[in-house]
Design a protein around this nucleic acid. Structure first.
Lengths: 211, 211
DNA sequence: TAGATTGTTAATCGATTAACAATC
DNA sequence: TAGATTGTTAATCGATTAACAATC
């Protein structure tokens, strides 16, 4: 089976979140592609294709079983696997990510946080003690870390990525606005927080000076 | 001229950030599309097309003028306009966004922060006093706010979006994993922080069980 | 002049949307 | 049966990549 594209994966996650919130309620057991589509501003045909792609089959005149959609999405995306993650860089953003409770429902648990700033080291955020960077390699030896969340300043990001890779990390979620040089086997997902401002700024400008 | 697409805008922003960092240095005044492309893992043809689309012309055998690229991107995306932004919801994420100094270089200044939690109100983050939600409408009357950054829990997001719209906001940067219902004239840019986890989780799963 | 790089057209690729027969 | 919804094929659309003449 051809791997799912990034946009398809994000749509699946949105279906999941939308239906999971709805799921807890009582009666409605089914949902149509049109309903999902309308709620999320996605074409109904697209919804049906996405569900077909992961093997969810619907019922004519009825729609799809909500529980089944959620279950299959969770299985396909791997939300039921338990993953250990670490955070490197406990500044404002890193601290916020550490305190954020929302990753757990996708199977990710943050097991450690590291920072080079001596003033941060030893403090505790969300029951997680901040450790010095130098303890990274020993820590990795005794833990099976699947993901490193890198939230350090741009200048430091490459250096720390190198360290992470050397310590055995092969998946990095990078919040610095820098493309990291890493070996082939390492997967880097960039998520620079400012990127959406490009569209926001552009639209504000256009409103000022319409074509 | 046809409006630029979201992906094109994000590429332009990446060119800008990459060259701006480089720009401060000394000698190199020119850059080729291939150089930019290699640095950012983007096809050289794509770079040339993007630059052509905003009216930057290069020189055969030489390349493009770095300063001109930056200048034209800034002008096109509106980074030189001054925009006032407010943050609604000063939890971990909202607080991090408030403290983040990086929006200024795109022309955005955060002029106020609001929260419904009485314990937050009155505290000061990054020289910005946190105000009670009820002061939102009066504040808007005396300020020209271009952007509201919405960083509240999912359950509260629609209610606060309604309030923002009523107070006159017409651009919202929404960090809650919820599609907001807003009038036609309001632009909402969603940026749910967890979305990239769909791809990360999927790839981790596939590594465990390769096709 | 020779050679590298732009600018642009054509080809490819993939994603989205429209249409509609099959199904319940 | 009638009507709504799925599942799937075809058409459209847009984005990316390849090719190459024009340019410096």
């Amino acid at each position: 089976m051809k791997p799912l594209t990034r946009v398809a994966l994000e749509r699946l996650m949105r279906y999941h979140d939308y239906l999971a919130r709805w799921n807890t309620g009582s009666p409605p057991k089914s949902v149509t592609s049109a309903q999902i589509g309308e709620a999320l501003a996605i074409d109904g045909t697209q919804v049906r294709k996405d569900l077909a792609a992961i093997g969810v089959v619907g019922l004519g005149r009825v729609g799809f079983d909500i529980c089944e959609i959620c279950r299959v999405i969770r299985a396909t995306l791997g939300f039921d696997e338990e993953h250990e993650a670490i955070i490197v860089g406990v500044g404002h953003l890193g601290g916020a990510l550490l305190a954020y409770q929302g990753f757990a429902k996708y199977g990710f648990e943050i097991v450690a946080a590291f920072d080079s700033d001596e003033r941060q080291v030893g403090t505790e955020i969300a029951d997680c003690r901040v450790r010095p960077i130098r303890s990274l390699t020993p820590f990795m030896k005794s833990h099976d870390v699947d993901l490193a969340i890198l939230a350090v300043p741009a200048e430091a990001s490459q250096r720390l990525a190198d360290r992470l890779v050397k310590a055995g990390v092969d998946t990095i979620w990078n919040f610095a606005p820098v493309r990291l040089e890493v070996p082939q086997h390492v997967f880097v997902r960039n998520a620079h927080i400012s990127l959406p401002l490009s569209e926001i700024s552009y639209r504000l400008k256009r409103k000022l000076t319409p074509a």
